[in-house]
Amino acid sequence: MSAHTHDDIDWADRLAQLRMADTLDAEALAPVARRLVAGLPERPVVVDVGCGAGGMSVLFARELGRRDGGTVVLVDATPALLAEARRVVSAAAAGSVEVVGQSGDLADPELAGRVPAADLMWASGVVHHVGDQQAALRTLAGLLRPGGVLAIAEGGLEMRCLPWELGVGRPGLEPRLLAARAAWFARMRAGISGSVAMPYGWTRALREAGLEDVESFGALIDHPMPGSDLLREYVVHRVGWLAESAGEWLDADDRDTVAALTDPEGPDFLGRRDDLFLFGAKAIHCGRLR
């Protein structure tokens, strides 16, 4: 059953796209998981808030399995995503790694009573869906054990996947899709209950949340042409999703172009191209509780 969260996004409907993104991102994010887990104590507790389809926690579970084990706690408000995350993370976990699923939402004031204190708290693309982002970071920091690490993935470089000219419609479709998505994002943020401005960057926000040793680093996502079948399928989903979510900011010509590009029966279907790619970067920001 589809479920809408407080940001009015139907995350269950995006499960297939999230699964594909997890697979495509895994190679780039595995070193991130290794870096974050490396400094943790023995048998740590890792909590993934807004775990989605579970891709990052699969990587955490594998890293814990290479050590003495530990616990991975999956938290999500969408039942279909939480169930999928438990399935894939449990399949990846060694016998020494415990996997726990917990329904919950970062905006829920009762979250602290639902999850254990964490040695590593991870939240990817989650904080920006909460009205008061600074308060959300304080909530996450408050769930850490002394010496624990909070790491968030927010921002970075938007993924690019299309050539400039596609042989249908006007050149430069992708920048217009991303501009439309940015307009949608601004309205989404303004429409969240309790939305307040946070007019500074994520590293300052982590320091404001009481964390030390704050740093940022990037993970490059790079799948060059001609791309795999999975990449082509993902690009079809991504282009359709961008146009669907932000279509009111596109003109009629661009909407027609997207329809042609995502029509499996049409001559311009993206899924048959050999010049698609995926290139961008995820930004990770982290800090430690004294």
Rank of each mutant, 00 (worst) to 15 (best):
A118K: 06
A118T: 09
A118Q: 08
A118N: 09
D119T: 04
L120Y: 05
M121E: 07
M121Y: 08
W122C: 04
G125H: 15
G125W: 12
V126Q: 12
V126K: 09
V126W: 10
V127G: 02
H129G: 05
Q133V: 10
A135Q: 13
G142H: 10
L143A: 12
R145E: 12
R145N: 09
G147S: 12
G148I: 14
G148P: 10
G148N: 11
L150H: 06
I152F: 06
A153Q: 14
L157E: 13
E158P: 04
E158F: 02
M159C: 01
R160N: 08
C161R: 05
C161V: 07
E165D: 14
L166E: 02
V168C: 05
V168K: 02
V168P: 00
R170M: 11
R170W: 08
L173Q: 04
L173F: 03
L173N: 01
E174A: 02
E174S: 03
E174I: 00
P175D: 01
R176T: 00
R176E: 02
L177S: 05
L177W: 01
A179R: 05
R181K: 11
A183C: 07
A183P: 01
W184M: 00
A186T: 15
A186L: 09
A186Y: 05
A186H: 11
R187V: 06
R187H: 07
R187L: 08
M188L: 15
M188H: 13
A190T: 10
A190D: 08
I192G: 11
I192L: 15
I192Q: 14
A197E: 14
Y200D: 07
G201N: 08
G201V: 07
G201K: 05
T203K: 09
R204D: 09
A205T: 09
G210Q: 06
L211D: 04
E215G: 09
E215M: 07
S216G: 11
S216F: 07
F217G: 15
G218D: 13
A219S: 06
A219P: 05
A219T: 04
I221D: 11
D222E: 06
H223Q: 03
P224C: 00
M225I: 14
L230I: 02
L230V: 01
L231E: 04
L231V: 01
L231C: 00
R232Y: 00
R232S: 03
R232I: 00
R232L: 04
E233A: 05
V235W: 00
V236L: 00
V236C: 01
H237N: 09
W241Q: 12
W241P: 04
A243M: 04
A246G: 02
A246M: 01
G247A: 05
E248Q: 15
W249D: 13
D251Q: 08
D253Y: 14
D253N: 12
D253A: 15
D256T: 14
